[in-house]
């Protein structure tokens, strides 16, 4: 369960301000966040993940108040509970697919990089049909394959929350459907929570809920 209440957030030296009274996402649900650009959809994901701390209000995830945690606690919480999927994949070009997927384990001691983990990577990679691409660098993959690598990295830690920022933004229609099917399947199997920012209204049918930021601001 994710809940945000009485949120007020603004960036330093910027006129942008995000105001949210109440917003919650239940476990096992898939929520699409839509709305025009510049309305704070990505900021919402950053607030949920604890990358940003609101100036006012509370962010609670699985009963824990994220905004009250220290930097290190928030990092650990994010690593162990959340998986990120980005529109531009955010893969490191100098690492091969295997190392990109294992990156969370290489940058934080909280996650233990054990030998058995590579088998787990192979399982998820097989599920995403990229098991034969593990030795390649991202530059040698198609857009759809890159997004599947990014999803593999996000799912490797078995997160209970997936935060996806326009995950299909750079993909062709066929890949869009594939990627969303993978994410939806994961949510169903693991009873996880999916919060996905999207501009693609064709995909909204697959979600349980849709949060329209335009409406939130209009009603406010």
């Amino acid at each position: 369960m994710i809940s945000l209440s009485n949120i007020s957030f603004h960036y330093p030296q910027s006129n942008f301000r995000l105001q949210l009274d109440e917003l919650s996402f239940h476990s096992g649900t898939k929520t699409a966040v839509v709305g025009p650009s510049g309305f704070g959809k990505t900021t919402l994901l950053h607030l949920i993940s604890g990358i940003y701390i609101p100036q006012n209000g509370e962010v609670e995830v699985h009963g824990k108040k994220v905004h009250l945690m220290s930097d290190a606690e928030r990092r650990t919480f994010r690593l162990t509970n959340m998986g990120f999927v980005f529109q531009d994949f955010k893969l490191l070009e100098y690492l091969n697919v295997m190392d990109n997927i294992l990156l969370p384990y290489r940058i934080n001691k909280v996650l233990k990089l054990e030998k058995a983990l590579k088998n787990h990577v192979f399982e998820i990679a097989s599920m995403l049909s990229i098991e034969d691409k593990l030795a390649r660098n991202p530059g040698n993959l198609s857009q759809g394959e890159r997004q599947r690598v990014a999803i593999c990295r996000a799912l490797l830690t078995n997160p209970s929350i997936i935060l996806a920022d326009e995950p299909t933004g750079n993909l062709d229609p066929e890949n869009k459907q594939n990627i969303m099917r993978i994410l939806f399947d994961y949510v169903s199997k693991k009873d996880a929570t999916l919060v996905a920012v999207t501009h693609d209204h064709e995909l909204l049918d697959g979600f349980d809920h849709v949060v329209d930021f335009k409406e939130i601001y209009t009603s406010a």
């Binding site: 990358i51 994010r78 955010k90 490191l92 940058i107 934080n108 996650l111 990295r153």
Partner: peptide, 15 residues
């Protein structure tokens, strides 16, 4: 971008 990715995924500044 690479540094942002690391922060987002769970890396600290010191790392």
């Amino acid at each position: 971008d690479e540094i942002y990715t690391m922060f987002t995924i769970g890396s600290g500044r010191w790392k």
